[in-house]
């Protein structure tokens, strides 16, 4: 379990065709967009898109970790909302609360992730089911907490700064944050025992277990990280919008899964690169942006989303033929 000699599949030595396809689609979208309006290739627009993509990028990072294990995290919508609402709520408790708002929001997401992890790793409930259930519980807790209304507390200055400020002129902070989280993820996946264990479990949990990996702990940690990153995404979104809202996470579940899967990560686990996820996130964000610039109504957007995911999956996400 040290960082031994092996090559990472499709990581450095050769590019995954799925990643290339995703980047190809990004370029295609930009070209199509520029035919529609010249603004699509302006640096301002591209930077703006990168900024919008960062929120999804943070959330998709956690989702990718879970999908690499061969699991899925469907508790994203309310982990996002819980993170945002709890961070805003903590801010109501004086200067101490304001200082701890962001960690507290993330911690709530980690708690949701830990429940998911216990269910999946120790109780052996299918992740899809247990994460749906924790999503429902988190929703229930938030509804009780807020009394059915959106909370009145608004985001703290620190949250707003993280989401909208710019430490270096020209580059928004969120892009930095995504780059940091992404860099950490690349390091963890490629250079640590934990990362190897994640790929190992995703490929064949039995083999990973037999080679001495504490698979249950790894699965547990992965879900906790996913919950924490979802909540952090929520915190950032709350900072971006200056307030938390109940349904703010609903729009992130499908795009997060789509981004990871479109980036070439196998939904069965064990295969995928972070570069692919980055491509998937940018692809989804551009698609959303172009559809909204073209004033496509919500119905059309949903249909195009769904069709895109099915088509891309049919292109390179198929399971091997039986026997």
């Amino acid at each position: 379990m040290t960082r031994a000699t092996g090559r990472k599949p499709g990581f450095i030595h050769r590019f995954d065709p799925a990643v290339l396809t995703a980047f190809g689609c990004i370029i295609l979208l930009l070209v199509l967009g520029s035919l529609y309006s010249r603004n699509f290739l302006s640096p301002d627009y591209l930077l703006q898109q990168l900024k919008v993509a960062s929120f999804l990028g943070v959330i998709a990072t956690g989702m990718m970790l879970v999908i690499l294990l061969g699991q899925i995290d469907l508790s994203v919508p309310w982990a996002v909302a819980t993170g945002a609402m709890m961070a805003c709520a903590a801010a109501a408790y004086g200067p101490f609360g304001v200082a701890l708002a962001i960690p507290f929001g993330i911690l709530c997401g980690v708690a949701i992730g830990v429940v998911n992890g216990i269910g999946v790793a120790y109780l052996r409930i299918p992740s899809m089911i247990v994460t749906l259930a924790t999503n429902a519980v988190a929703q229930g807790v938030m509804v009780v907490y807020t009394g059915g209304f959106s909370p009145q507390d608004s985001a703290t200055a620190a949250m707003r700064y993280l989401a909208t400020g710019g430490l270096i002129p020209g580059i928004p902070n969120v892009v930095f944050i995504w780059a940091l989280i992404g860099g950490a993820m690349v390091f963890v996946l490629g250079r640590t025992g934990f990362g190897r264990a994640v790929y190992g479990i995703g490929n064949r949990e039995r083999a990973a277990y037999l080679s001495g990996i504490n698979t249950r702990r790894i699965v547990m940690i992965a879900f906790a990280v996913s919950g924490g990153l979802s909540a952090f995404g929520g915190v950032l979104l709350a900072g971006y919008a200056s307030k938390a809202a109940q349904s703010m996470g609903d729009a992130y579940l499908l795009p997060a899964i789509a981004a990871v899967v479109l980036g070439g990560t196998s939904i069965l686990g064990g295969r995928g690169t972070y570069l692919g996820t980055v491509a998937g996130v940018i692809l989804i964000t551009l698609l959303q942006s172009i559809l909204s610039v073209m004033q496509m109504p919500e119905a059309g957007r949903q249909i195009i989303y769904g069709l895109m995911i099915v088509l891309m999956l049919l292109l390179y996400g198929r399971a091997p033929a039986s026997r």
Binding site: I303, Y305, V310
Partner: peptide, 13 residues
């Protein structure tokens, strides 16, 4: 395709 992802996508459609 995996039923989870496939039906999430068709569900959106």
């Amino acid at each position: 395709l995996q039923p989870i992802v496939a039906t999430i996508a068709t569900g959106a459609v």
